[in-house]
Design a binder for these strands. Sequence first.
DNA 1: GACTTGTGCGCAATCGTTTGCACACCGAAT
DNA 2: ATTCGGTGTGCAAACGATTGCGCACAAGTC
Lengths: 341, 341
Amino acid sequence: MSSNNPTIKEIALRLNVSVSTVSRALHDHPRIGLKTRERVKELAREMKYVPNAQAIFFKKQKTAVIGVVLPSIKEEFFSQAISGIEAAATQYNYTILFGQSHDDPAIEKRVVDTMKRQRVDGIIISLSKNTHKISFLKEIEMAGIPVVFFDRVPDQADVHKVYCDIYKSTIDMVNWLYSRGFRKIAMINGPSILTASRERLEGYKQALSQKKMKIDMRYFESTDLTKEGTTHAMKKLLSLKNVPTAVISFNDYVHMDATQYAHLQGININKDIAFVSYSNLSITDYTAYPPLLSVEQYPYGQGEQSMETMIRAMKEQHPTHQYYHEEVPATLVIHGTKHVR
Amino acid sequence: MSSNNPTIKEIALRLNVSVSTVSRALHDHPRIGLKTRERVKELAREMKYVPNAQAIFFKKQKTAVIGVVLPSIKEEFFSQAISGIEAAATQYNYTILFGQSHDDPAIEKRVVDTMKRQRVDGIIISLSKNTHKISFLKEIEMAGIPVVFFDRVPDQADVHKVYCDIYKSTIDMVNWLYSRGFRKIAMINGPSILTASRERLEGYKQALSQKKMKIDMRYFESTDLTKEGTTHAMKKLLSLKNVPTAVISFNDYVHMDATQYAHLQGININKDIAFVSYSNLSITDYTAYPPLLSVEQYPYGQGEQSMETMIRAMKEQHPTHQYYHEEVPATLVIHGTKHVR
DNA sequence: GACTTGTGCGCAATCGTTTGCACACCGAAT
DNA sequence: ATTCGGTGTGCAAACGATTGCGCACAAGTC
């Protein structure tokens, strides 16, 4: 009936011992006699005593809570990532305080502030696509809360970060297309402020020049990741007099919008034009026009790795001069043609 | 440089006033003189003072944290839901402590225990599909932590719950099919322990009997929601000598597996057999065989509503005898045939 | 018998903040 | 001159748990 959780004080009172004895008994302190220990544990069980983590962590100045800030959990990539983070966190007995930035830097800052107030032990963050200054996060770090960036990471070296090498996998991707005879390779890239976009672009250019192909910027389009932006980009590509024979999309969502539009324009997907992409969403197995190939970025693995890195970062003494850069390998996943028509 | 966050004590020391004065000044207590108030606030800003929420909530016996337990965030339904919960929580200045059960009752219990330790102010939970006993949650409630169930809710009345009326929408769905001339209507339902499954079954039966149609249990199959389970169910339906002309799937994931298999068996989706489903996933717009119709269950809205209900539940004095049952309306969304082939 | 060693337990401080109460001072009203 | 009300501030307890230190008692050693 009592709404209040029992405390060690109440146990102590009932057993006529001191609170310190109860505390030590519950922790199996060797200096506490066996019978006392048993009596305490017995009563604790009976009273359904659950230690107050708030009090413990307050005392210890630790919370065993990690803040996780993502642009949007609606994206499969991030929901997979947080799943990995949570799995690893559970292993290390940490819990997850969760916040979304919705790609809005102001909200992102507010979420981070709340987490600081909550005195999380660390923050794992994938930056909003509109965030340019990360000074507020450096401040957090200066205040003794380690920050680990993942996937959408800043360029600078003085941060902990976990990401996969899009540059390298983009080169692999272009080579794959080249080896299959494609020469007119277009790209629908994401917003240029994203590191992810820059890496795609640089990998694209690098691969082409390795093959001694000249880079035609008319084959290079961008989208703001909305359906409209992607449709517009695809429209421009289709209007070229030299229509590309292959299109690399920024990710599978862009790919879906691009192919949907292209299909409406009478293009026979992966016949007239080959489509390849990034993300390797599980859902593409069910889509009308799966990409021939998609770069798997292992969001779950990146999430796990972020948590591992966080654990190590938390062990460093403050201030750190040791920054971890973890590169998770990306791999090309070639889809069967079973559902391609 | 200092890794430690400043406290009101340090501010008090520097200003030669007491901690109580600092505390009150920061809260604009009217009995503190204007100049003192200004001096305190000025210094607080200068020292980048951030109140220690741990200490405050420890003192106040409130954490402003709501625990959210979901089966798996990888499902779009739940990632949408948590998005809604988070949005509403932010409005009320609550933050979200997050955990997944992975449909495992043991993990579910462990997650809830951790949350109790953390002294969350409330728990919003969508039950694991294998959870039969919710006594551990009633205990949590007895201990003064309100529990709000959503979507996957228990049958009993003595709980707070938010859900949508699947029974009613199933009747609408069957009527929709009936009005278009379909008479051999099959169903691939989910695990029978889920309320969601029972409601679908009952709606199905009710609708058929309203139309004076006899209920043929050969048209009724179940899946454990795995691809294999669904394929098996579909296989049985296709092997009937009286093959159904319409199939109602438990949700869009089941629908995708069912139609994928049916297609491989040479069925012309939505021509030979009409397919309808639940969830109305945004992704179905891009899938090879979208359902003709899908029941929108508004996960985001259910999430928001769950948080609203939580706010109300937390206001009730303990123990409650006032339980909230919130029914979010479900609606039929009829897909165009644009991508159906 | 004095000394050491080990065993079993309690006292009290501590973490950062809030808050009821008391107190001191001041001007004004009686 | 006393009382009163208002204003500005400090004291100290409280929230729940942990932990260094100290004390009391018993058993063993010389």
